[in-house]
Amino acid sequence: MSAHANLERRRQAIYGWLLLSPAAILLTVFAFYPTIATLWSSMFSRGTRRNPTEFIGAENYADLFADPTFWLVVRNNLFYAGITIPVSIGIALAMALWANSKISARGFVRTAYFTPTVLPMIAAANLWLFFYTPGLGVLDQIGSLFGLPSVNWLGQPETALWAIIIVTIWKEAGFFMIFYLAALQTIPEDLKEAADIEGTSRWTYTRRIVLPLLMPTTLFIAVNAMINSVKLIDHLFILTKGGPSDASKLILYYIWEMAFAFFDAPHAAAMTMLVIAVLGLVAAVQFLYLDKRTHYQ
């Protein structure tokens, strides 16, 4: 190969690395290194004045598996994810299909749906706190009109988690709708016309044409929703603080509690590693399995 072609290739390679480096450096400093540091610290015992820190291998993990609260929190989180992900995706899709059709005041409908998303989490949680408050809250006020007894939605184990779930759905559906709306805009109008001429009903068209074409978006949203379901913490601070009797405690809140309320950093680190492992696994399955069944344009 001649000299100038070699030089050109080297220049291209340097150019590529330069473009790559900002992301690589940031990810290494703020994501990869902390992950490894967490893994490392999860294998040491909690240091006290009498017992200094020592390497104990997987003992922290064993402790967690033996901890009933840990399993309760995991169950809570699975239930929470199992309800919020499908329901908020379903509502988002329905709202997007409606907001995308030819209705009057379309702009208003879109903005209205999107409002919960732009509200700060803490503000939204305070708003719902007011809804749920026994006696004074909006829900109880409405209930009392029909003669229903006052319910302490957040204060009893049977309803606390449900109350959190409803707040999350309310907050996420509007956000996901925006993605669906954007995807719906890319479906050409003449597909609908071609289907119309064949005599396709609205339902068949949605099921056979629109939903498959929205699959890439659905996949993206599902992964996001799953990550969000593990990331939720700020609502809990305002609404329930994980109570009553851990009924609404989710994983991240428990990690936070472990690390900053009980000052048990090694156990918190071990739990963090478990979360990372599970999330990574699920994301891999979603992308590898669903990718094959998804048509990208």
Partner: peptide, 16 residues
């Protein structure tokens, strides 16, 4: 359109 017993070829083909 479906009641008119016709078929149509679109400029963009409109294939799914």
């Amino acid at each position: 359109a479906s009641d008119r017993n016709l078929s149509m070829v679109f400029q963009s083909y409109a294939l799914f």
